[in-house]
Design a protein around this nucleic acid. Structure first.
Lengths: 248, 248
DNA sequence: CGAACCCTTGACAGAAATCAACTAAGGTGG
DNA sequence: CCACCTTAGTTGATTTCTGTCAAGGGTTCG
């Protein structure tokens, strides 16, 4: 592990309140590893042996069933994933692969479970983390069930604009096909719908998003803090940049 | 609160491991209340002041946006809901209404937060509960994104059959329109698709489900423990009967 | 008995997946 | 440096699926 990484981890909401001794114990069993882009880190159904912390790069969490596949979330530095499976000592519900070359720290889940049993502050942090993850997925599910794909795209674009500081123009953080899968549609559908959205105040130039009429776009997307969420409640990554939507 | 209710609550996974003194403290601020059917218990966006424990009856958790509405879960005795919002002291993401006449116990969320800060065993229970809720919603989202509505219906019917002890015939625990909403479709769509499923090994007679060819139905539904879940991981309600799928 | 309400069915319109072809960009290897 | 290959993205044609609107049958409950 690199010298600058330890304090970065320590400052994560998940680890910042625990006793130093326990933090050190937890980190003692940890090890960092670099992975090339496109590597499958875990497959759904595998036993959960390690909590993963993304230090550099990006990781896609996805699910598959009956030959189909869909993106569930993207985790960026500094964020953690598969906390829930580690805690329950249960099989992963999602697979994970690197989207770029990534550095990831692995914490043995048995250590994790041992430490929160003796460190109440850490237990409270885990509780908050899980509650945040839970609410994040509920929001995702609400979006899928209540909004049309057109509305999901519009609100996604507005949400990203907000994350970029309410800029009218910003770059998409992920490939379009991944975005389509995350939003629950096919790439063809996304492509076509994006084109029709030009009439509603947003235009795409390659990977560049240009909001031409925010009011109009908002009228369509009807952003709602109970779906799109306030920044304060972004899941694992505290002040970082979960560009698609984190989660565990 | 009734005399028999306290031990029932005490035996819930969420409360069974905490210190007796803390359990008593928690219950001191609690009160039970009876509600008629069809009453809105809370509206999404409201502040989370009470953890709810369903002792009798049934509660529907649902979400709304832009004039639309959808069912997210049904909670039955003995189960809890909105734990996550209580912990984060954040607004509810879902509304709740009684489906039948129900008895519900309300625990002030401030007491809850105070107690798990000083009772590690309780904190660990909360962690497990939340992790279970999280995994439950992830499964729901996976079903929505990976399966067609036809497949969702088929696997739902098989899942319920399993809960009923793998009976070939059992009664639907909820109204069809609610089921449709839970499964992410319109009542009309459910009605029509159910009819076509007669060719795939399942028949409905009113509210009665009759599985005529389990192998054929399974081939269509392709039940998957990473979506449909093993019983052991049902969310809040331990050995109880979360007929649609619990959750918080 | 009447009024809701649930469920079903039909007809239709809209949305989305699928299949296929084509472009453009990036990377590889000669 | 160029030819080649791979892959993301777009576009079109088509089919399938799904939501919507409307009407009718059945049940429950006041």
């Amino acid at each position: 592990m690199r010298p600058h990484e330890l304090p970065e981890i320590r400052h994560l909401p998940l680890f910042r309140d625990m006793l130093q001794a326990n933090f050190e114990a937890l980190m003692h069993g940890a090890y960092a590893q670099a992975f090339p882009a496109g590597l499958e880190l875990m497959r759904q159904g595998d036993p959960a042996d390690f909590l993963h912390v993304v230090m550099e790069g990006a990781v896609e969490l996805y699910a598959h069933w009956g030959g189909r596949e869909c993106t569930m979330a993207v985790v960026r530095p500094v964020g953690t994933f598969i906390l829930a499976a580690c805690i329950k000592d249960a099989p992963y519900l999602m697979s994970a692969r690197t989207l770029e070359r990534s550095r990831i720290i692995l914490l043995p889940s048995s250590d994790l479970r041992a430490v929160f049993r003796r460190d109440t502050e850490f237990a409270v942090s885990v509780i908050h983390e899980l509650a945040g993850c839970y609410r994040s997925v509920v929001r995702h599910a609400k979006g899928l069930k209540l909004r049309t794909s057109r509305e999901r795209i519009a609100s996604y674009l507005l949400r990203q604009s907000a994350l970029a500081g309410n800029l009218a123009s910003y770059g998409l953080p992920v490939e379009k096909r991944l975005l389509a899968s995350y939003l629950g549609m096919t790439p063809e559908n996304l492509s076509r719908t994006l084109k029709t959205l030009e009439a509603d105040g947003v235009k795409l130039d390659g990977t560049r998003v240009i909001i031409t009429d925010r009011a109009k776009l908002s009228a369509l997307a009807q952003p709602d803090r109970l779906i799109d969420g306030p920044d304060s409640e972004t899941p694992s990554a505290g002040a970082s940049l979960p560009r698609v939507q984190g989660g565990d």
